[in-house]
Each structure stands twice: as structure tokens, then as C-alpha cells.
Write a protein that binds this DNA or RNA. Structure first.
Lengths: 215, 215
DNA sequence: CTAAAACACGAGCGACCGCTCGCACTCGAA
DNA sequence: TTCGAGTGCGAGCGGTCGCTCGTGTTTTAG
């Protein structure tokens, strides 16, 4: 319950001040990751942005990757708090285009407010291939997509469902990244294209209407 | 004609040995970029892979970025030599799915043979945002896609055409990258998904049949 | 043949990175 | 009030990286 008191690392007792510092450091990390991407973001720069020394940063995070992981977890949690209803079963029974709106719009809006989200999930400069914030966000979202597709097209073989979810997720991620590179009307136009791409891809695969449960 | 004898840099007269070294270094760079991506690929590693010293590398390339740019130009030239007919007008008049096969299959095959191509065009770790091999490849391909779409859907407003081309290109790039992360049958299945995604996206936009020239 | 230019080497420079360490402070439970 | 644990600092360690430079060798022009 109190973080993970596992064998290797003592989790340490935090004072209120420390908790504040951690949030401060995560905010700074979000800003710097967003500006430079994970690899080019230096831990010293994150500490400077947070107005603390490098040593202080390492009082709260064992290494650079842990910062990204914590940030990823915080972002995911914030998104689930704000838009946790996006993937509910109710939406899955909507017509395809409405379902996409219901699912995508909250995520898009969240990305507008938290650009670090995309910076972390989009950048392929993951450190050790495994772990890293990208994996946290990716795995969670991917799983939601898989569940939605399975609910909607239960007759689809599982491995095919995984492929469709993966492909749809990649299209969404890159399409959103594309949109975020533009402003105002142009950005809106790219979001329209993104939805058109997803609709065009998914319609033949999982149908435009909700699946009527047979027998 | 003789490279660029512009104000700032003297282009230097190359011997046969030097030309060979450059090709050798580009081969090595392709291998290392492919293994590590642009940023994590060190110039010393490229020199080592080519069996020369770091100093020798810098006799032929002024800096790391120039290596990537030269490699990008060489890859693009090789692809145009091998599959230059992919974007010809003849293919543009085919039905959509056939057209996609005609255009995508050669590019996919080329990527199987030259994995550095994807490594360069996919990695977002471009150095100074501008230039770099990625821009060379991206701009060239993007332009081909734009021309194909304009030919096929001439009534489409130009800026909309650019957006469609950009979106389609991104879907292709990431879908191919996804496929390349798998092997054998799984990879083939992802290529099927990639084509399904492009077909689904482009069919409503530019039509399944070639555009009949009106008036 | 000779001199200049191209080629080749590899130690190492300077900058930066992730991260450490010794020490000073502040807080809060006893 | 006390004192240990939590917090904070920042110089700097060990390492990697892109790139340089002095020197020596090979090729080529005249």
C-alpha cells in the first residue's frame, strides 16, 4: 500500500516538503521532456527547472528513467481521473464514428493540456528498451483499445484483435502528433483527417454499428 | 556540377581510394544507424565499423549530420534507381487497392533490403530539427505522394491534398515500422493491416477508382 | 624524381552527461 | 528540547561523445 516495500530498495519515509518537491520535479520533468524529448533532457536541466540542485533530484528518484516512469504513471492516473469513462462499455455500443468521438475527444483534449503525454509516448528514444514511461502509457492504452475492439467484434480472433488494436493505436498516436505540430484551424483539420483514417480503417474490420450479441 | 563549390567550403579533390572510403563509411553508418538510431550512433563507432580511424572519417564528412544527409541521399537515389517507376502516372490510374500495391510493395521490399532507410526516416532524434537525412527522405517521398494524390483527385483543394498526403505518409511510415518489428507471418499480417488502413483512409477521400478527367 | 595534395592514424581536447558524496540545514516525533 | 531522519546543496567524478591536430604515408601532377 505504501509504495513498494520490496526486497531491494528502502522506500523511505517522506515529509510533506518531500512530496511537494517530487511533484515540483515531475512538473519540471514534464516541461523539459516536452521541450527536448527524453534522451536530450538532462537531469541537471530538470533540477534547474525545478529550482533545486542535482543532488536534491537524486534524493527522490534513483535515476533518470525513474523520473520518466513516475511521470508516466502520474499522467496516466490523471487521465483516468479526468476521462476514465471514455472506454466504458456504453461508448462501445455507439455507432463507430460516435464511439471514436467519445473515446478520442477526451484523450485529445487531455493532450492539449498535457503535452508531455505525447512527448513521452511518441519519442522512440527509450533508454533500455524495457520499462520507461513510454511502456507504462503504451501498455495501459493499448489494453483499453484491445478490450474495446474485443467487445465490439467478439468473433475476431485474438491475435488479429491485437494487430488491429496495435495498428489503430499507432495511427492515433502519430496522427495526434501530426496535429499537435500545427495550430488552430490547421490542427483541427488534421484531427479531422485522423478521425477519418481511424474510421476508414476500423469500419471494414469491426463494423460501423455496434455488434449485436448473437444467440 | 562538381558538388557545391560555394563560398564557405572547398569541396576537395577526391582520389579513387577516397571515393571507396566514403562508400565504406556510408555502409558502416547505415549499419550503425540501423542498430542504434541516429543519436546513439557514435561517429567513433561508425569509423570502427568501417575499419578506419575517427580522423579518417572526418576527412570525408565535416560532421555527424553530414554523414546522415549523404546516406539519406544515397538511399533515396538507390530507391529511385530500383523502383523509380512506382509513382509513374500509369499506376495512378489503377484501382485504389492495385495502386497501393504497385506503390507500396516496391518500397516495402526496398526497406527489407535496406533497414537503415526506416531507421533514418522513423527516428525522431533529429539533431537540429532542420536538415538531416530524415528531411531528405521525407521531403522527397512526401512530394511523390502529393503528386499522386493531386493526379488522382485534382478537384481536391491543395492544402487538403497536402494534409491527406502527410497523413497517408505518416500512416505508411509507422505501419511499416510496426511490421518491421515482427517476423515472417506476423510481419505479413501487419502489412495487410497497413494496406487496409491506407485503403480505408484514402477510399472515401480520393475514390476507389481512378478519377475520370472531366470537361 | 620531386613536391604538393590527398589519405590515414590515434591520442586526446573540451563539453556535457548521469550521478555521487560530504556536509549543512530543517523538521517532527519522542 | 533533543536528535535522528529527511532535505538540500553543488563541486566534481567517471565516462562518452563529436571532433581536432600533429604527424606520417601514399598517390598524383608536372
Amino acid at each position: 500500500m505504501e509504495e513498494d516495500i520490496s526486497a531491494t530498495s528502502a522506500p523511505r519515509r517522506r515529509q510533506a516538503r518531500g512530496k511537494r518537491r517530487m511533484a515540483q520535479l515531475l512538473d519540471a520533468a514534464a516541461s523539459v521532456f516536452c521541450k527536448c524529448g527524453y534522451t536530450k533532457a538532462s537531469t541537471n536541466a530538470i533540477a534547474r527547472e525545478a529550482g533545486v540542485s542535482p543532488g536534491t533530484l537524486y534524493q527522490f528518484f534513483p535515476n533518470k528513467e525513474a523520473i520518466a516512469v513516475h511521470l508516466g504513471e502520474r499522467l496516466m492516473q490523471q487521465m483516468l481521473e479526468a476521462h476514465g469513462q471514455a472506454f466504458t462499455d456504453a461508448n462501445v455500443s455507439l455507432p463507430l464514428d460516435k464511439m471514436l468521438d467519445a473515446i478520442l475527444d477526451p484523450i485529445i483534449e487531455f493532450n492539449l493540456r498535457n503535452p508531455a503525454f505525447l512527448a513521452l509516448i511518441h519519442g522512440p528514444d527509450t533508454p533500455g528498451e524495457i520499462a520507461s514511461s513510454k511502456q507504462v502509457l503504451h501498455a495501459t492504452l493499448q489494453r483499453q483499445v484491445e478490450e474495446a475492439i474485443t467487445l465490439r467484434a467478439p468473433e475476431l480472433p485474438h491475435d488479429q484483435c491485437v494487430r488491429v488494436a496495435t495498428t489503430a493505436f499507432v495511427i492515433f498516436r502519430e496522427g495526434l502528433s501530426l496535429a499537435m505540430q500545427h495550430q488552430g484551424a490547421e490542427r483541427a483539420a488534421y484531427i479531422v483527417e485522423l478521425k477519418a483514417a481511424l474510421t476508414g480503417y476500423l469500419a471494414p474490420t469491426i463494423g460501423t454499428e455496434a455488434h449485436a450479441v448473437r444467440h
